[in-house]
């Protein structure tokens, strides 16, 4: 009997937590189909509390009656969506290349710069996460203005690379640390150069970690709002910035904001469902031998 009770308690807790976790997503999706009155009255259940309308999707040109016609909002939306893809994938690839190289170095070679050694360098990288991004707003604005990087895709990719680099280095260093050094040494004896050993032996083994680091940084960049809002305006603006700017003359257009948010969440949900096991595998290698 206590076992059954145990199970009931566990499942109740899990169900409650699932609802808590999924409710915001449901709220966003359902708001897409609400008119202003439904939003303000806090109607929740479609077809019971409110009658779904195409308002939100029409606002970005994706409702059945607008999808085959010319639509400025849709063009705008696709442009922002594409910008987000470019910025997050571009930055993640760059961060992965730089971060893996840095992590490999920190994991395998001993560095010394004045009183700084490997541990201090690792901590320096990680410490970049301690600083709130707001502190960097002014300096970056000035710097980007001087370098003519404002409102450019390259500028956005660079700052995103910088912001995810600490996490990539941390994950990859952990990954490389779990690979025994004898593997490279065996490769060296077998006839590889140092780079050969890295590319032929170490990289393939570190692949799960690289996939995890890549997915994680894509997610972080995809959701980034602060620097995108600060450093871009018309050309390089990303989806989160567009979501936030859905304010019309009659206040906030909740439905179109919800429609854009849904579109922004969707790729992440897909990543979450299909690639979750790679993330877990990558982040837990080495913990179980």
């Amino acid at each position: 009997m206590p076992r059954t009770l145990n199970r009931i308690l566990i499942y109740t807790a899990l169900i409650v937590w699932t609802i808590i976790a999924l409710f915001p997503i449901f709220w966003t999706f359902s708001t897409t189909f609400k008119v202003a009155k439904d939003v303000q009255l806090g109607h929740i259940i479609p077809w019971v509390d409110f009658k779904p309308a195409w308002l939100g999707l029409r606002a970005i040109g994706l409702s059945p009656d607008t999808i085959f016609t010319e639509s400025t909002p849709r063009t705008e939306f696709i442009k922002r969506f594409w910008n987000s893809i470019q910025a997050s994938i571009g930055a993640s690839i760059l961060a992965l290349i730089l971060g893996s190289a840095a992590a490999y170095g920190l994991s395998r070679f001993q560095y010394k710069w004045k009183i700084w050694k490997n541990r201090d360098i690792s901590f320096f990288f990680l410490s970049q996460l301690i600083l709130p991004p707001v502190v960097l707003a002014m300096p970056f604005l000035v710097l980007y203005k001087e370098l003519a990087l404002l409102d450019s895709m390259i500028g956005l990719i660079l700052i995103y690379t910088l912001s995810v680099l600490p996490i990539v280095i941390w994950i990859m260093k952990d990954q490389f640390d779990t690979i025994p050094q004898e593997l490279e040494q065996a490769a060296l004896v077998d006839g590889c150069s140092i780079w050969g050993a890295f590319f032929r032996i170490i990289l393939p083994i570190a692949m799960p970690g690289m996939v995890a680091a890549f997915i994680l940084s894509v997610i972080l960049c995809w959701n980034e709002y602060f620097f995108a809002a600060l450093l871009t305006s018309s050309y390089a603006k990303t989806l989160p910035v567009m979501v936030a700017s859905q304010t019309g003359s009659q206040g906030i257009s909740w439905w179109s904001m919800a429609a854009l948010s849904s579109a922004a969440i969707l790729p992440l949900i897909i990543i979450g469902i299909f690639l979750e096991r790679y993330i877990v595998k990558g982040l837990t290698t080495g913990s179980v031998k």
């Binding site: 025994p180 004898e182 593997l183 040494q185 065996a186």
Partner: peptide, 10 residues
């Protein structure tokens, strides 16, 4: 050719 204590197989 070298044989390692932990074998170091790829």
């Amino acid at each position: 050719a070298m044989v390692f204590q932990n074998y170091a197989l790829y």
